[in-house]
Design a protein around this nucleic acid. Sequence first.
RNA 1: GGGCCUCUAGCUCAGUCGGUAGAGCAUCGGACUUUUAAUCCGCUGGUCCAGGGUUCGAGCCCCUGGGGGCCCA
Length: 618
Amino acid sequence: MRHDHRRAGGRVGHRLAITSTVVSDMQLDDWVSRIADEVIAEAQRLGSPVVCASGLSPSGPIHLGNLREVMTPHLVADEVRRRGIAADHLISWDDYDRFRRVPAGLDGVDESWAEHIGKPLTSVPPPHGSPHRSWAAHFRAQCEESLNELGIDYRSISQTEQYTSGAYTEQILFAMEHRAQIDKVLDQYRTLDAAAAAGAKPGNGGTPGKGGKPAPKLSEDEAAAAAAAAEGSGAAAEDDGSADGGYYPYKPYCTVCGRDTTTVTGYDDATTELSYSCACGHSETVLLKDFRHGKLVWKVDWPMRWAYEKVIFEPSGVDHQSPGSSFEVGKDLAPLFGWQRPIGPMYAFVGIKGMAKMSSSRGRVPVPADALQIMEPALVRWLYARRRPNQSFDIAFDAEIQRLYDEWDALQRRVSEGAAGPAEYAAQVRASSVADRSLPVTPHPISYRTLASIVDITTGDEDQLLRIVGQLDPKDPVSSVDELRPRLDCVEHWVATRMAAEDRTVVRTGPATELLAAATDEQRESLRMLLDGNGSELSAVEDGWTLEGLTHQVYGVPKVQRGFAADQIVKGDKELSAAQRTFFVLLYRLLIDKDTGPRLPTLLLAIGPERVRALLTP
RNA sequence: GGGCCUCUAGCUCAGUCGGUAGAGCAUCGGACUUUUAAUCCGCUGGUCCAGGGUUCGAGCCCCUGGGGGCCCA
């Protein structure tokens, strides 16, 4: 427990609105808590409410890497709320950004979308078959469904709405008026040496590049390369508004063709008359104070919004950690708008095990909904809560998910026994609950590994599944498959879509006639004994069609064949062990065409007596 | 060219404020009528990348070098 933080929380609580009277006795102690300490202190210093922000660009599927942009502020805001202090988590949908390129490999999308490049994402049609109004709406809705499942509470802001409603007009006019000053700030980051100086001393209070050696501007070639890179890259590298004809931090979308292939050619501060020409041939002069068809360039837009929403905390991806990135530049631009750069850790990328780096532009990348099909919301939350933001991690869709679940189940046990460490305890709490409620859990959590094996061999027959599961632990019987959900649903989906072919159990559709014909007399005898018994201790296999009975039967056959009683306890007999193994291999080959497989009693139970008899009878 | 991250057991990784190096898996051994893809217990296993520095004390902090990954120019 961290009494200092509890005191701090209480003190802050007097100044900031208290939303809940239920404050946990136990102060969670992990990286989230430490950031929350900092965020609360900063909000207090500024005399402003706690505002945590995420920015998402619905330019394509919002993938599991982007989810960190949401999870990190969510966890921090949630921790602040756990302390009884109001916290806002806003998600800014950058749906007024230009459509940069057509992502490859998306269903319902073809090359014809290329004609929309340059338009705002909300003006691009959605993929074929989508019920949504626009490209942005389509991918936003897909994402929000998952955010809801994950228990993330937030407030949405559409940048399209903000810009087209004129919410930012004052800020836009301000930025235009101060364009020379903004240009000067940006200019400090446009030279290589300045960039180096800025990066060499992270956290220094001064202005990077200032007072340094005179540095050469980028050459024509370098500038061109930079522009090309910005064209294809993410927000970190985006256009800062510089152009040959002077610097303007505002870019109109052409009122004729709708694209941002425009160049501002003049601006009058007094009248706010802005002239622009577009690559489509159109040019016009508009009154910027009334014009609502354009936006501030990204590097200016972001700091303006920090000020507009009074953001205290907003993380960003590691691509912002380079000298001259929008986050870096924002530190100097935010004060112009009367605010400061928020606290913002750089989070490392999330990978998918066995897959190249995720990129929205590449099309078919796993999105949160994909993960939620094979794991419960708490597990997805756990992945993000247990690692500090600067640690990269991979999400596994293969058999490693069984290990993840084993670890999770082990953690539940440690937590319930009070044996969990502070950080892992915190991660468990954050994964399975938010400030004001618990997330749905599976009432009877059977090991994912075990369920996968049973689901595999029972091929969706839930009566069989219940019967087998029911015999796993007689002391704690499962009475209904519903007790196994939603974990069971995840397992079923995993087995159906992700289980490796070589791990699957495929029961033969008909008898392996060649194998049966080649069997030795002893082997034929063993099969007959398994099916029909030996007339005394072993009876027909159907008579003991339970897990226990079948266990007795499969182990009894080799014993009887070697002169033991079927239920005799035999220890240390190597020959018997070898005979058992040989017998099992024979059965596996005849049943599933492999040398090994799920435990035989389970397998036999799942296959059913008629089919077993059909496959094992010569 | 610049920056960020990372390097700990065979593998994947924890290691919080600087205080005797940990877990899971794998291996190996054992138990359960069981050499099986569901159970449980235990053992083994480390030059914490290298070198230097600060410190009573460094996996952790500082410097230099190396490997790997990523971002930017």
